[in-house]
Simulated assay, not measured.
Amino acid sequence: MRRQGVASVRRLRDASCAALVGLWLAPITGALAQANPPGPGSAIGLGNRGWSGADTNGQTSANGLEFSARAGVASDYIYRGITLSDHGPAAGAAFETRFGPLYAGTTVATVKLPTEPAAEFTFAGGIRPKIANIDFDLGVTYFAYPGERLPGETNGINYWEAVVRGDRRIGEHIRVAAGFAYSPNVSNTGAWSQYAAAGVGYDVPGHLLPQNLAVSFTAAAGYSWFGNQAAQLGGFPLPGYLNWQAGVTFTHEAFNLDLRYYDTNLSKENCFVFTGDPNARPGGRVNLVTNPDGLVSNWCGATFVAKAWFALN
């Protein structure tokens, strides 16, 4: 490989890992986290992070100060269709405080990313008003990745994102949700990011289930698009892509089990450009601007994930 090619690959990996890291196990507002879910484990996931407290405990407080927490493990760490754990297991925990419609919280999660951070931490706050028949969530989240061993040309990948989401129930058992997220500098790459998503959920009637068991089927799809990265990272825009997921969640008192399928329409070549996968291999289609060595990654393909956690109020 030519020296110029090696340098290009290194720049690509620095840029791409920065783009990737901003993705998954989110803040208590979670990227498009659940505004007012009907019950533990039944949130419609719109690109929200894995153990976000708001994902299952986002209801507003009616009686002063309230707290919620959750912790669990998953067979993979998927965020908007892309693994943040190199398709390996991950663990995480979240804590949230609510006072009326106001909320604030934090999460921590294990990750395996190109910059090699010690963990992922998120800090979030916002408001969850109810307008007409729609439960809204408006929040801001800061993503932090301490202890990065390979921070790259951008000197780290910390960044923030603003989100707005709305949920509405249709009848007794059907729910719909939609949301939008924006970051002015995703993963410290210099590129703005936007994400729009929508989903639907169905809660199985309680009289059809054993006592203290709840079952919810949910599915959602979203699209991400980006601006140009900083000049030192190549100056080109990160590849936009579609992601989708569907699955079922079982809840028994505080215990939750989710079984879910994830996928994206990213090619293996663009998957490398986006993620900077350090285990990418040659053999793909060459793009002289974004991927001059034709490296390919499997971090963005079809994945089945089992996730279990406990949620406490």
Rank of each mutant, 00 (worst) to 15 (best):
Q59G: 09
R260Y: 06
P114T: 04
Y159M: 08
A214N: 14
P239L: 02
N212R: 10
L259N: 07
G125N: 08
V6A: 09
N212S: 10
P205N: 01
T122N: 03
N228E: 14
D86F: 05
L266W: 08
F226Q: 07
I82N: 01
A306F: 03
A93V: 12
A308P: 04
L20Y: 00
G156H: 02
G276T: 08
Y261T: 02
W309M: 11
P114I: 08
F67W: 05
R175S: 09
R10P: 13
A246L: 09
D137P: 03
D167A: 06
N57V: 14
S85K: 03
G294A: 14
G139F: 10
A7W: 05
G284M: 14
V111W: 10
G240Y: 01
P184M: 04
D86Q: 11
Y159Q: 06
L12Q: 12
T264G: 09
A91C: 13
Q245F: 02
E172S: 15
F272C: 08
E269W: 04
G190F: 11
G58N: 10
P117H: 00
V176D: 06
P114Y: 04
T122Q: 03
A191C: 10
Q211H: 13
L238H: 01
A15D: 06
G294W: 10
G235Q: 13
E116P: 03
P117T: 01
L25A: 09
Q232L: 10
K268G: 08
A221Q: 14
G45L: 12
H207S: 09
V111F: 12
A196D: 01
M1H: 06
V176Y: 03
R128Y: 06
L238N: 01
G81M: 03
N63V: 11
G190E: 08
L113H: 14
P282S: 01
I78L: 15
A181T: 02
D203V: 11
V140H: 09
G222Q: 09
A109Q: 07
Y79R: 04
V108I: 15
G126Y: 07
N212I: 14
R285M: 09
G22D: 07
P282R: 00
F274L: 15
G240C: 10
F272W: 12
E116Q: 12
R285E: 06
L84D: 05
P89R: 10
L295A: 08
P38F: 13
R285W: 00
A308S: 06
F250Y: 05
Y241P: 13
T110Q: 02
F95N: 04
F236M: 15
G30R: 01
G227D: 08
G126W: 05
A91L: 15
